[in-house]
Simulated assay, not measured.
Amino acid sequence: MENVNWIALIVAALSTLVIGFLWYGPLFGKAWMKETGITEEKAQKGMILRFSISVVLAFIAVFFIYANSVISGGMPPDLHGVEVTKFHTFGHGVVHGIMTALFVAMPVLVTNALFEQKSFKYILINVGYWIVTFAIMGGIVNAWV
Rank of each mutant, 00 (worst) to 15 (best):
S54M: 01
I131L: 13
A61P: 00
S72C: 09
L57M: 12
K121G: 05
K86E: 15
M99I: 10
G46R: 13
F28Y: 06
A12T: 05
V55W: 00
L102S: 03
H96T: 04
F59W: 07
G46H: 00
A101G: 13
T85S: 15
A135H: 09
F134E: 09
F90I: 04
F87D: 06
W23R: 04
V108I: 14
G29F: 07
L102P: 06
G37D: 02
G93Q: 06
N112I: 12
V108K: 11
M47T: 11
G81D: 10
V82P: 08
A105V: 13
F90T: 08
P77W: 09
I98Y: 06
A61N: 13
E41Y: 11
S119N: 02
Q44L: 14
V55P: 00
A31S: 11
L124T: 07
A31N: 06
F115L: 12
G29L: 03
V18R: 06
L114P: 00
N142A: 01
L79C: 01
H92G: 07
P76R: 12
I140G: 05
Q117E: 15
F51Q: 14
W32I: 00
V104Q: 03
I48G: 15
V62Q: 14
M106E: 03
K118E: 01
A143L: 10
P26M: 13
Y129K: 05
E116C: 01
R50F: 14
G74F: 05
L14E: 07
L14M: 10
F90M: 02
V110P: 08
S52A: 15
Y122M: 04
Q117I: 12
V95W: 12
M137I: 05
I10M: 10
I60T: 05
L22I: 13
M47N: 03
A143N: 14
L27S: 07
G93V: 03
V56C: 06
V141W: 06
K42Y: 03
F120N: 14
M33T: 02
V4S: 04
I7K: 11
I10T: 11
M137S: 08
T85M: 13
I7V: 14
I125V: 03
G93L: 05
I125R: 01
M1K: 13
L109T: 06
G91H: 06
K86C: 05
V141F: 00
G138E: 08
V127G: 10
T85N: 13
N3W: 14
G37P: 08
E41W: 12
Q44P: 09
A67R: 12
L79V: 15
R50D: 08
